[in-house]
Design a protein around this nucleic acid. Structure first.
Length: 254
DNA sequence: ATGGCGGTGTAACACCGA
């Protein structure tokens, strides 16, 4: 069984990429972030025609998340019940026996901004909610765009990023707090190539120069971690025409 | 130091992302 996550940066623009990628990578579950579209404009028929069940929570212009699955989807929750939020950044559901929590964690902009305060409050509320969710659902996967590079080895140029959002100690502490809910970063369970990232800026030919960050993650509770045999970042669709700036992350469970 | 690029909304540029 394969679980994947991908920030598509506009599903309207990236639908052909998603369909092509799913054809080549028929994963069981795919979490999407940054749909940037209202629910009325969600390409439901195209996704269903590709053989997927789907649930989604969108809004105009920003944010928006979805869960696609080859298996029936039940018990859908939109947003964190502990954190009233105008942004559509969380959708959770049960499929194939797994509680899938799809997140688009706030960017944070800069450490002295109101958006950073929002990010940290959002992360604390996520932790508090997941504490209960993990107890209720022992087989839980927290997947999405975290906008956090957990360690310096997840950053192309740590010196250049110092003092910026995504790499700060408060954010990294929040990431460790999630791991402390007895979850494993699937990517780090295995030997990995050095300098492998999941996001590269559109500017300055950052992808060709591999100037990236690893900010998209799959965290697995212990029972799922025990089943996990591989976790990869697929850089292939980042090379396609008009790509998302993020690459999919894929975990394989036995 | 600033803006690079790309998407959205809207119809020339502002806002946002990371």
């Amino acid at each position: 069984m394969k679980l994947a996550t991908w920030n598509v940066n506009s599903l309207k623009v990236r639908l052909p990429h998603v369909l092509k990628w799913l054809e080549e990578n028929p994963v069981d579950v795919l979490c999407l972030q940054e749909l940037k579209t209202i629910d009325e404009k969600f390409p439901l028929a195209d996704i269903q025609a590709a053989g997927y069940h789907v649930v989604f929570s969108g809004q105009k212009t920003y944010n928006g998340v979805a869960i696609l699955s080859r298996h029936p989807i039940t018990d859908v929750v939109k947003n964190n019940p502990l954190f009233p939020d105008d942004h559509q950044r969380i959708i959770a559901a049960t499929t194939a026996g797994v509680r899938v929590v799809c997140v688009y964690i706030p960017n944070g902009q800069s450490l002295d901004s109101d958006k950073f305060t929002y990010k940290m409050q959002w992360l604390k509320a996520l932790h508090d909610w997941l504490k209960d969710e993990c107890a209720t659902h022992p087989q839980l996967a927290l997947m999405g765009d975290y906008n956090i590079a957990p360690e310096d080895r997840d950053v192309c140029d740590p010196a250049a990023w110092e003092g910026q959002t995504h790499v700060s100690e408060p954010e990294r502490n929040a990431f460790r707090d999630l791991l402390a809910l007895n979850m494993k970063d699937a990517f780090r369970m295995f030997e990995q190539p050095e300098k492998l990232y999941s996001w590269w800026d559109y500017r300055q030919m950052a992808f060709r120069r591999n100037m990236g960050l690893r900010i998209d993650h799959i965290l697995l509770t212990q029972p799922l971690a025990e089943r996990c045999v591989e976790c990869v970042i697929d850089k292939v669709p980042r090379k396609w025409e008009q790509p998302s700036d993020h690459a999919p992350v894929v975990a394989t469970l036995k």
